[in-house]
């Protein structure tokens, strides 16, 4: 009764999509994943310190990368954020945090662009205290308000009207870790060497940039 061939065969219904998609998934997802995981590090890129690595976990847990990218594109408009990112910059970045949306600025080189710890603490406690038009959430749960600072406390000089009416704002360990991570986000300079240096990896993008919106 049942037609045994082609699209009226239940074995084909399962086997054909299964085999074709498995092959495509391996070819276009898994193999690029394996190959690019072997990318050599850009000279000068080193693993994070233990504290910065803990800070990165805070960054991930709070979902910072939904609004902040960590990828500088080889486009003129991105150069305010640093030099174009290259493949070797991401060797120690698992999970990757390139991001897909810039409701806030790119942070690839924020450690160089905003080296002030005090600024970072105030900004995390109340972004609008330093950038009045900012729409970033305030991360007050990363701080504690204490009547007096104890020895060793990192006191955050929050300006009025954002400072608490009584007591002092003290950074928790999570805030200190997070700021250590932000300070660690510094792009290493690329050596202008020719040949197979990581700089070569960025060159196709740089060449294409004029067609892609740069002038």
């Amino acid at each position: 009764m049942k037609s045994a061939s082609g699209m009226n065969n239940v074995v084909m219904l399962v086997a054909a999509p299964l085999v074709i998609y498995a092959v495509l998934a391996i070819a276009t997802g898994v193999i690029p994943g394996i190959e690019l995981s072997r990318t050599p590090a850009t000279p000068g890129v080193v693993p994070l310190s233990a504290q910065a690595a803990r800070g990165r976990e805070v960054y991930v847990g709070e979902g910072c990368s939904y609004c902040h990218t960590q990828q500088v594109r080889p486009l003129k408009e991105d150069l305010v954020f640093g030099r174009p990112s290259v493949a070797g910059d991401y060797v120690y970045d698992t999970p990757e945090l390139l991001g897909s949306e810039r409701n806030g600025p790119d942070l690839s080189d924020i450690g160089d662009r905003q080296p002030s710890e005090v600024w970072q603490y105030i900004h995390l406690y109340e972004p609008r205290a330093v950038v009045s038009e900012s729409i970033m959430p305030s991360y007050r749960w990363l701080f504690r308000i204490k009547p007096h600072a104890d020895p060793g406390d990192v006191v955050v000089p929050v300006p009025p009207p954002y400072s608490p009416p009584h007591g002092v704002v003290v950074a928790t360990a999570k805030a200190r870790d997070l700021v250590a991570y932000l300070k660690s986000l510094r792009q290493v300079p690329l050596r202008p060497a020719a040949g197979t240096s990581p700089a070569a990896a960025a060159s196709p993008g740089v060449r294409a940039a004029p067609g892609g919106g740069g002038r």
Partner: peptide
Amino acid sequence: LGITAILPWYQHGLGQVAVQGF
């Protein structure tokens, strides 16, 4: 797709970016 996404051992750094796009 779910199996390729969930296995962590082959995707690191930029490799994970490729898997994520996929």
